[in-house]
Design a protein around this nucleic acid. Sequence first.
DNA 1: GGTCGGATTTGATCTGCATCAACCGGCATC
DNA 2: GATGCCGGTTGATGCAGATCAAATCCGACC
Lengths: 237, 237
Amino acid sequence: MKISLVAVEPNEQPCIDCSVRQFSLCAALDKAELRELEQLGRHVHFASCETVFAQEEMTTSFFNLLEGVMRLYKLLPDGRRQIVGFALPGEFLGMTTSARHSFSADAIGPVAVCRFSRASFARFIENKAHLLRRINELAVRELNQAQDHMVLLGRRSAEEKVATFLIGWRDRLVHLKGPTKTVALPMSRQDIADYLGLTIETVSRTFTKLERDGVIEILPGGVRLLDPARAEALAAA
Amino acid sequence: MKISLVAVEPNEQPCIDCSVRQFSLCAALDKAELRELEQLGRHVHFASCETVFAQEEMTTSFFNLLEGVMRLYKLLPDGRRQIVGFALPGEFLGMTTSARHSFSADAIGPVAVCRFSRASFARFIENKAHLLRRINELAVRELNQAQDHMVLLGRRSAEEKVATFLIGWRDRLVHLKGPTKTVALPMSRQDIADYLGLTIETVSRTFTKLERDGVIEILPGGVRLLDPARAEALAAA
DNA sequence: GGTCGGATTTGATCTGCATCAACCGGCATC
DNA sequence: GATGCCGGTTGATGCAGATCAAATCCGACC
């Protein structure tokens, strides 16, 4: 949970070869801009469970996630936690106009990010209308996802929640890495529970039920979707 | 619930005198731009419960809310409803890059909006970096609110939900119209329930409980906050 | 291989909110 | 001023998911 203070060496890889470029907001940049941006970003690594930034902390940096998975969450004063999303490579994090971060982000497994100082990044985008439009587009997409998640949290049963999560997560992994039968779940049951507004026990029981019903097979570190159609039906319902 | 087809006459009021200008994204425009925008927008009125735009409908227009209150909601195929927000004057609605609206919006009481065609508005903002930044800022703010609402839906009790709603709604009204003791609630109990992920009965019982506890007084069309501190404590908790 | 500790599963029980049902009050209509 | 209707409240009961508790699994470390 502590902040890592890693020595920063020159990036091992130029932006132009960046594996997440076409998924991230950098896709909107031309070669010259990419070279300019390259000067501003620094690769930083975080170990599993390290906090990349925390709720209420001053916003000094923005982050482009390059490798790994992160959980984004809010805490209530009494410790209740709501995970507002899981970030995958390509996701741009911490982007806010406010002085402090509105949620915390930490690494699930080892993570690599491209870090930008808030000020220099703000200067970089300041007058680039195409990039601002791209950022808008990403913000709108995120807002849509957030609204979908509200529906899930407010109006769906435990079984629907879990099925929706599995299908949604699978779709994101497929989009990133191509089709697979097995869905890797690097996050803990507690993370899933805090994402879905359930308890860990209910998540566990629901997984077991879905397995009994032949919808999934529970594997170490993930699940296999035995009956994707059934899962999708539960998710759509 | 049906779409109103109102005759459109020239706007009775120029943008420069618009009562919601400083609250809306138009605040970022200079006089010349404001005059340009004026050519693009048309005032339209909707009666109570009319739908301004619906989920899955083609995105042909954007709307700036001038007067009245709207509910923004998503429906599941089986009719379950989640209200993702209530819109007040100044709110810019329907802004999305996707071809179809991702949620529905209808009037709670009579409503006046400034309607822009999607295409002409997109052309208008295309290369205005300052306006794009303003839009970003508003999008980020909305996203924050959405995330706060996720915490509420996923992790809070009925009493906390209702108290949080009352305080949040009061704060918005205060920001818009200045301080008051009484909080007007134009939306129905069912709307509040669908916003908070509860049933109408639970909302009603919770109001009654808060009144018994001396936190609020239930009035026709709203409540009076007798003990704002207690309500705020419940909301913060 | 043994054992320790955290993650997960499973079981038993409890409870907050949903559900089902009746009732109340205002107000529009005849 | 009776009647019907709609939104809201209140009451009785049920149940999904929470809570409490224990067992199991599994990898890390010795």
